[in-house]
Design a protein around this nucleic acid. Sequence first.
DNA 1: TAAATAAACGGAGGCACCTCCGCTTTAGTG
DNA 2: CACTAAAGCGGAGGTGCCTCCGTTTATTTA
Lengths: 200, 200
Amino acid sequence: MTVEATRDAPAQKPLRADAQRNRDRLVEVAAQAFATDGVDASLEEIAKRAGVGIGTLYRHFPTREHLVEIVYRREVEGLCHAAEELARDHPADVALELWMQRFVDYIATKRGLATSLRLLLTTNSTLFSDTSGRVSGAMRGLIEAAAATGKIRADVDASDVMHALGGIYSAPNTPDWRARSGRLVKLLMDGLRFGAKKAG
Amino acid sequence: MTVEATRDAPAQKPLRADAQRNRDRLVEVAAQAFATDGVDASLEEIAKRAGVGIGTLYRHFPTREHLVEIVYRREVEGLCHAAEELARDHPADVALELWMQRFVDYIATKRGLATSLRLLLTTNSTLFSDTSGRVSGAMRGLIEAAAATGKIRADVDASDVMHALGGIYSAPNTPDWRARSGRLVKLLMDGLRFGAKKAG
DNA sequence: TAAATAAACGGAGGCACCTCCGCTTTAGTG
DNA sequence: CACTAAAGCGGAGGTGCCTCCGTTTATTTA
């Protein structure tokens, strides 16, 4: 109840240089750890690998969920950024294919974080809308570009493709999941290329 | 991979007398502990208070969620049983009112278990359908009885009342939540009694 | 009732969580 | 540069989780 310059605009002031460094390092290491060992990766281990004390980790991320959320958002960010980059550096159909392969990795991560994410997605209502919108937006961009340049058939849209990728979300857990998903993407691409420019 | 009389009909054989005793005791104590301290109550403490070792607790309930689920189902069971009992021992409108007061306790518990339950309800798909059906069924019985005997107005049904109680679920967490909910029930009952037998 | 056996018990031990607070580092100021 | 306040660091320590396995107890059989 102490009255003390209660800040109401929480436009967080920039972190001190060392703090920012540590924070970045932590997220980096955590992303790796979650990917390798699942959401239950030891936070103490993460702190150690990032070369900081456990206290530092907890100051930056008060709960495991905070850290998971940051890592997940970063993943989404990376995926969207990759879309732009691939679009710049490759023919539209190749960009789309490469991106979908990366999308498989994203799903893999998402599955790894499943338990925590489920909770986060029901709790933190903005998380779902933020991320799913961004991802499908990135995909739409790639598809429209590929269709516009005649590299893939023009009679499909982003939601069709997203739907076609649905299988990746579901039937899981086998050790060959990743390989299978890769093949699914290839298959889908063949289908998309078939008939390109024909229907135009 | 050892082949060894794999039982396929898991009609669980009755527990040994002492085991059953311990199990009952654990659930009892856990219900109390969860109500008092929330879902994060110490399992070791629960075991101790139940007079058993922590190993025993874990043998019966491999995870905290198992225990939470059992406690929750027991709560639902109790609530439904109370409906029958109250209906037997009181005039229909009084039974309904008393039952709704108890319903408030149930909601309180449910809120206490919130985090775990949310996870359970998205994971364990039968849990939701089982319990919500039973509870609203019990309520419907009481309401129809009260309406049939002319103790409350006849132009409402169970889903109306459930809806009217919606406020109890939502706006929460203030220390006077329970008192407020109690008043809400009273208010609702007055409304239900008003016009009884008039419209018949 | 005594012996045999399957079921259940319980708590020590190892690991992870998370808080707390004395120490260190940074970023300003003169 | 020297100084200082504020920001950040880190890890010891107290607590809870959960597994593992030697010991105890209920039940069955003779």
